[in-house]
């Protein structure tokens, strides 16, 4: 059988489908009056610990809701359950190829479990990963990256995608600085090389340093 090759123009963005779902999420958040944070970091940078401090500090002032993203387990959600805030766990395990980050559809799937109109600030705690989450909008207003000083000074240069997309960087675990060779000035220089002038706050979830400043930033940005 004779076969003819044909060429067809497509011109379709690889992430268009995700971006459209993210936009739909965004409209839903706006309608419910939610300010939405996409919180991203490597595994173990201290996202959940900082959230615990944040929930303690903002209790009675703002209603926070949490969408907890993990590949497996409900360990993080279990840790936060004692705060009795609206909380949903989304496990990304069933999605082939989607296990390393939250995408807009996974976030959407979790929203029916949350009383959105009651929530002032929704924190979407993304899967711990320094690359993939940066590619996928989920409908957030702002991207907050948690980076711990145990991760080394050079990571902004190695993983510019996420550092470039952050609106705020929480430089966490600064209580450990005196025990480490980590050069804070060099790290901040590398950060400015990929995202010039990005806002940054030095924090320690352990001692509480910087938590007040972070919470003020959040209240101010929410407006």
């Amino acid at each position: 059988m004779h076969r003819t090759a044909v060429k067809q123009i497509v011109m379709e963005g690889v992430l268009d489908a995700n971006d459209a779902l993210a936009q739909a999420n965004r409209e839903r958040f706006d309608g419910a009056g939610n300010y939405v944070i996409n919180m991203m970091s490597s595994p173990g940078a201290g996202k959940t610990a900082l959230l615990e401090r944040t929930l303690e500090r903002l209790r009675g002032k703002l209603c926070l809701g949490i969408l907890e993203g993990d590949v497996q387990t409900t360990l993080d959600a279990d840790r936060l359950a004692r705060f009795h805030v609206p909380l949903v766990q989304v496990n990304t395990d069933p999605g082939f190829g989607g296990e390393c980050h939250l995408d807009a559809n996974m976030v959407r799937s979790g929203l029916s479990e949350l009383p959105l109109p009651e929530i002032d600030v929704l924190v979407i705690e993304n899967v711990g990963n320094l690359v993939c989450p940066a590619e996928f909008k989920v409908g957030e207003d702002v991207r907050v990256m948690v980076y711990s000083v145990t991760e080394g000074e050079e990571k902004p240069l190695k993983y510019p995608l996420m550092f470039r997309s952050a609106d705020l960087v929480l430089v966490n675990k600064v209580d450990l600085l005196e025990h480490l060779d980590f050069d804070l000035e060099q790290f901040l220089g590398n950060l400015d090389a990929v995202n010039p002038g990005v806002e940054r706050i030095l924090t320690s979830a352990r001692t509480g340093q910087g938590v007040e400043e972070w919470c003020s930033w959040l209240e101010h940005r929410r407006g």
Binding site: T4, A5, V10, E12, V14, P196
Partner: peptide
């Protein structure tokens, strides 16, 4: 990185190219 102007050394750049991610076309058997 850093993304820097070759002329004045400035860091405030509008990205014109380099953020593309799209399927341009397909070749198929009719």
């Amino acid at each position: 990185f850093p993304l820097q102007c070759r002329e004045c050394g400035g860091f405030d750049l509008e990205i014109v190219e380099g953020e593309e991610l799209y399927v341009e076309s397909l070749e198929m058997e009719e």
